[in-house]
């Protein structure tokens, strides 16, 4: 009986994994197929793989593969640079600001604290698309359109509430008496926070940073509206593979795989911390 149930659990779990991974596998196979094989019905499961699409998106094929928003690019290298600058910048800015705010929420009695935290959450509930037009307008007036700092600020507006919520919980788990003890021992409040509390909340901080980075790295909407030629990020570049009535499926898939590669690698390396951070709040109240 128990054995049957065990098998059933495995069947269910593996089918969920399969359903989740199937598009990704399809996507990966497409990136390795020649253009003809891509459209074959029934789909070709066995074929001789080609790296042509990868060569094309990396600019080794000599063709113009992506053209979008008034320009065309022959490789996605610049996109990697742009995405990295924006993801690192926005993650850094929102982590610093959000953690300081979280510290305030966790350690001080603030009048209207619950409403304020609720308001932060509200910002995340509003569909990003409803904010993007006002942001575009404001940024145009401020001369921030198509600048790194502009996209970083825009992404941070969405990420800071996330950091505040995550870090408030993590910091609350660290007893305030540790900071007080450090203050009696000779530190000021800020150094007690940085040198005592943050190291103890590092699993949570790490998880927050990773989630944050992945969200910004993958974001499409803000960069789509707020960037054009010089600061275009990778997800936006992919749209460029639909050009002049052609859809370059193979290139799209190859670029997609290259884009998710860093994120997957980071997640794999950080899995231990991310899991620890994500579940830490669940056990200790």
């Amino acid at each position: 009986m128990l054995r049957h149930r065990h098998i059933l659990v495995h069947v269910v779990l593996w089918s969920i994994v399969g359903m989740t991974l199937l598009p990704l596998i399809w996507f990966f196979l497409t990136s390795l197929k020649s253009t003809n094989e891509t459209f074959q019905i029934p789909p070709a499961w066995f074929f001789s793989p080609t790296l042509d699409h990868y060569r094309n998106v990396l600019g080794m094929g000599g063709e113009i593969v992506s053209s979008f928003q008034g320009g065309s690019v022959s490789n996605i290298g610049k996109g990697f640079v742009n995405s990295t600058i924006i993801a690192v910048g926005a993650t850094g800015l929102s982590t610093v600001l959000g953690t300081i705010a979280a510290f305030g929420f966790a350690r001080f009695t603030i009048r209207g604290e619950h409403y304020l935290l609720g308001l932060y959450l509200l910002i995340r509930m509003v569909p990003a698309v409803s904010m993007v037009l006002p942001l575009y307008h404001i940024f145009s007036m401020a001369g921030l359109n198509d600048t790194y700092i502009g996209v970083i600020i825009a992404e941070s507006t969405f990420q800071v509430p996330f950091v505040v919520w995550m870090m408030t919980g993590f910091i609350r788990q660290i007893p305030a008496s540790l900071e007080e003890s450090a203050m009696m021992d000779g530190m000021n409040r800020l150094s007690a926070m940085v040198r005592i509390t943050l190291p103890l909340a590092s699993a949570g901080l790490f998880a927050t940073v990773i989630f944050n980075f992945v969200q910004v790295w993958n974001d499409f909407l803000y960069p789509l509206v707020l960037t054009s030629q010089s600061t275009q990020t990778l997800p936006v570049m992919i749209i460029g593979f639909i050009a002049n009535g052609n859809i370059f499926w193979g290139e799209m898939a190859a670029a997609g795989i290259l884009i998710i590669l860093p994120v997957v690698l980071i997640s794999l390396v950080a899995q231990k911390y991310v899991l620890a951070g994500a579940t830490a709040g669940a056990i200790k109240g």
Partner: peptide, 20 residues
């Protein structure tokens, strides 16, 4: 005057030892 400048030592209820 800040706590660190009062030359006082405190023993906390939960000991507050630095775990790391």
């Amino acid at each position: 005057v800040a706590p660190r400048d009062r030359d006082i030592a405190m023993v906390f209820q939960n000991y507050a030892l630095y775990p790391h």
